[in-house]
């Protein structure tokens, strides 16, 4: 038990903080705990959660993928065009996933083969992919996506839970398995922790980074398809600035920006916290401008947590010796 606590200290603390936040919201408006509202929280966290799960992989390798919001948009547009033109939904989904693979692989190519800084490389593809989305659509939305596609993600299972919530959970479970149960996971952490040492240990650094960026691209395309399913239309401006929320969720959940650290559970809880915060503030009628202020403060405080903890432990140690 203690072992589990040590391993997931960060996750547990963020989760408890989220529960406390939930209790405050409930005290101010009991409706916060209604089933409908809980559903809203989960639905609200789906897009950000899936994107965050993906970007976490790149951050663990000490990289970043700023282009996820744009991959998200391109996928939505392409899949929408497929569906509108009569391509069977399953095939359209395959096309969507392939777009994620290609977009991610190109990012991987830039940061490995061309050795570009991930921040700069994906800043470039961010604009590049967004541009492609505009060029393809000419700026007009693709509408009237048939229900046969939409229901795959947007349909309700039971108690009002939509399939896309299940999709998100599956994404996190797979992410967790990759990170904690496979060789790829160990290699990802090794590359992020010390790329030189990982390379000298025989870790295939190129392959590992490619995997990280491809996983990230695929997650972005899954999120793009979920968005398309719930709206029924796609446009080139979709997903603008979504990468910032995804980074925030990963960071709150304990993913180290310097690389080498981060868990699927942590990122899940980080996305969950942001969703609770956003929905909660609506429920207690906080002005939407103030929501940004509060969200910003929470991100900063949550990220400062590590240091607070270190300070606290040092203080305890001093007490002990005195």
């Amino acid at each position: 038990m203690k072992h589990i606590f040590d391993k997931y200290k960060r996750e547990i603390v963020v989760f408890l903080a989220t529960i406390v936040m939930g209790m405050i919201f409930t005290a101010m408006n009991p409706n916060f705990l209604s089933w409908n509202n809980i559903l809203t929280v989960f639905q609200k966290m789906v897009l950000n959660g899936v994107l965050a799960a993906g970007i976490m992989f790149t951050i663990i390798t000490a990289g970043i993928d700023l282009s996820i919001g744009c991959t998200f948009a391109i996928t939505g547009i392409a899949v929408a065009m497929c569906c509108v033109n009569g391509v069977p939904p399953i095939l359209a989904i395959v096309v969507g996933l392939l777009i994620g693979v290609v977009a991610g692989a190109f990012n991987g190519f830039l940061v490995t083969n061309l050795k570009l800084q991930p921040f700069i490389a994906t800043l470039g593809t961010m604009s590049l992919y967004r541009g492609i989305a505009y060029v393809v659509t000419g700026g007009t939305p693709v509408t009237n996506v048939p229900d046969s596609f939409r229901n795959i993600f947007n349909g309700k299972m039971f108690m009002g839970i939509r399939y896309y919530v299940l999709v998100m959970i599956v994404v996190f479970v797979i992410a967790h398995i990759i990170l904690s149960k496979t060789r790829t996971g160990d290699n990802l952490y090794a590359v992020g922790g010390n790329e030189e040492a990982a390379n000298l240990s025989g870790v295939n650094v190129f392959k590992t980074k490619y995997i990280a960026y491809i996983v990230c691209g695929v997650c972005a395309s899954i999120a793009g398809m979920i968005m398309l399913a719930s709206l029924g239309s796609a446009e080139a401006t979709a997903g603008l600035t979504y990468e910032t929320d995804a980074i925030a969720a990963a960071a709150i959940g304990g993913t180290a920006m310097a690389g080498g650290r981060g868990t699927a559970l942590g990122t899940f809880i980080g996305a969950f916290m942001l969703a609770v915060l956003k929905v909660g503030m609506v429920v207690i009628n906080v002005d939407s401008f103030w929501q940004y202020v509060v969200t910003g403060i929470i991100i900063i405080v949550a990220s400062y947590f590590e240091f607070i903890k270190a300070d606290f432990e040092a203080m305890l140690a001093r007490r002990k010796n005195a």
Binding site: Y189, A190, G193, N194, E196, A197, A198, L200, A256, G260
Partner: peptide
């Protein structure tokens, strides 16, 4: 330190 081991491992 810089080439041998992963710090967080």
């Amino acid at each position: 330190k810089t080439q041998g081991f992963m710090n967080q491992f």
